[in-house]
């Protein structure tokens, strides 16, 4: 398992990183935690000419309080997300999802932003980020721009990030006091989800005032179960309302369609209870 030869660059600022990306051209690649890219390199499924290692950009690490939202640095590791109090208090769903990612070794190396940029439709973080209406803050040669998650995930392993851009932060609105759950079905512990459902629910006076539902590995990217969300709002937080709404997660009769419905029901039930 030996990768093809590549140039290794270690920028010390975001501006330098962006400049390096522009200089090295389309075949350069940013490496963050390396938990998806390194296997791909070693199997020679990809052979970038240059790797730009952004591990030195410490300003991209950590979670910050930004008023109505959290800013999660792209280089924040899964392990750090799991233990962050702001995430625990205001974006519980992200912590619960992160708990299920791979194993402790990978969670110590892999990064929040790296997972999103890799855009594997079976990756766990895409659906909750989509469901939570997160916004990507991106740096490029023309300066900064913001892209909502709904426009960021384009297709299998494809995002709106241009080859010369870097993801800096993810802005996640605060969901303080919402119940949340991630219902994941995978065959063995280290395997990707067959299907998983991320749900966050706000319950007020016994009825559902708002809901967010995202589906993992059902399409070529994460899916937002908007019909399920709409069906829940204003309903009493009962098993019956939840199972009625969950039926709208998918209309097909295939195995994954069934899982989407079953796991949506389970995720919502646990989110309401939690």
């Amino acid at each position: 398992m030996i990768p093809a030869e590549f140039k290794y660059l270690f920028p010390s600022s975001v501006d330098e990183a962006v400049r390096m990306l522009a200089e090295e051209g389309e075949d350069a690649k940013v490496i963050a935690g390396g938990q998806s890219l390194v296997p791909v390199l070693r199997m020679r499924l990809a052979a970038p000419t240059a790797l730009i290692d952004i591990a030195g950009l410490t300003e991209l690490t950590g979670v910050r309080d930004d008023g109505d939202s959290l800013l999660i640095g792209a280089m924040t590791t899964h392990y750090e997300v799991q233990r962050d109090h702001l995430v625990q208090d205001h974006a519980l769903l992200l912590r619960l999802v992160t708990d299920t990612i791979a194993d402790p070794q990978i969670r110590h190396r892999g990064t929040f932003g790296g997972s999103l940029c890799h855009a594997d439709p079976a990756g766990d973080l895409l659906a909750p980020v989509l469901a939570l209406d997160a916004v990507m803050i991106i740096a490029g040669p023309a300066g900064r721009r913001e892209v909502p998650a709904s426009e960021f995930f384009v297709d299998y392993f494809t995002t709106a990030l241009a080859p010369d851009e870097i993801l800096l932060d993810v802005r996640v609105p605060k969901y303080t006091g919402w119940g949340a759950h991630y219902e994941k079905l995978n065959r063995v512990a280290q395997a990707w989800s067959i299907v998983a459902v991320a749900a966050a629910v706000q319950v007020r006076d016994g009825s559902i005032s708002a809901a967010r539902v995202g589906l993992t590995n059902v399409g070529s990217g994460p899916l937002r179960a908007t019909e399920v969300e709409a069906a829940l709002v204003g309903q009493p937080a009962t098993a019956e309302a939840i199972s009625d709404a969950a039926l709208r997660a998918s209309s097909g009769d295939g195995y994954k369609d069934n899982l989407a419905r079953v796991l949506t029901g389970r995720a919502l039930t646990a989110a309401v209870a939690g």
């Binding site: 398992m1 499924l45 594997d120 079976a122 995978n186 065959r187 395997a191 990707w192 590995n217």
Partner: peptide
């Protein structure tokens, strides 16, 4: 059979 994964690998890339 549904699962995530890397799918088929080009056999020629064996040693790499």
């Amino acid at each position: 059979v549904a699962a995530g994964g890397l799918g088929s690998i080009d056999a020629q890339g064996g040693q790499s």
